[in-house]
Amino acid sequence: MIRDITIGQYYQTKSVIHELDPRVKLMGTMVFIISLFFGKSIWMYLAVTVFLAAVIKLSRVPLKFIVKGLKAVLILIIFSAAFNLFLTDGEVVVRLWKLKITKEGIYQAVFMVIRLMYLIMGSSLMTLTTTPNNLTDALEKSLGFLKVIKVPVHEIAMIMSIALRFIPILIEETDKIMKAQMARGADFENGNLIKRAKAMVPVLVPLFISAFRRANELAMAMEARCYHGSEGRTKMKPLKYNRRDRIAYAVLAVYLCGIAALNIYMGGRII
């Protein structure tokens, strides 16, 4: 049922991308997203597509897995496409009653859809190839400079990794409780909105109780092992760059420069 949610999920396999330092992937995702919003020429989108396809190929994550993440934002994509299509001023192509579709609108809509899709695909590729723990490690390390201005970076990273760790547990728990209530005749599929919302009470109450119980137990277990924040804490597997990561950074730099150069060359032209 709810197991279809793939955002934030990790896909286990062995690949070059999986083995990269998470900081590289974090940076890579950022570079990729920035590059998406650089310009609006077809050639640039072609280059971005090639880059994304190459990374997906290298990651060995099946494409349908990455595409599945798009389902969650389908409505958003449709809406932004519609708004861009109808509300952009310019050379009118089709006129439907009070709505008009312009040439500029079509371009805008298509580019917006591509941007949003690639945005989701790029970021889900990062989570699919990086374990949540690695990801928060990378965040902690990359944002370490904020410690100077007394931002509790370690604690925030810890909270994040615990939250991420709890997502699959809570999903499983929800599934279990729903089944248990269905075995007692609960009906989640039929009825109007209010009836269905009411039907969720027998699921949500036990779910909250168990979430609090788990949180309590975890806090207890952490305290029992003398956890007290970042002070003097070392890592079992500290993040370290090696040759592969340096090559990846170089590739990213070349990619970003390439895209920038392409946009300067194209100016504001689309084709």
Partner: peptide, 17 residues
């Protein structure tokens, strides 16, 4: 069928609400 075949899950106390 679900009313005829009653199923008590593992740790059923977690479903009380």
């Amino acid at each position: 069928l679900r009313s005829k075949v009653g199923l008590v899950f593992q740790y059923p106390e977690h479903q009380l609400f």
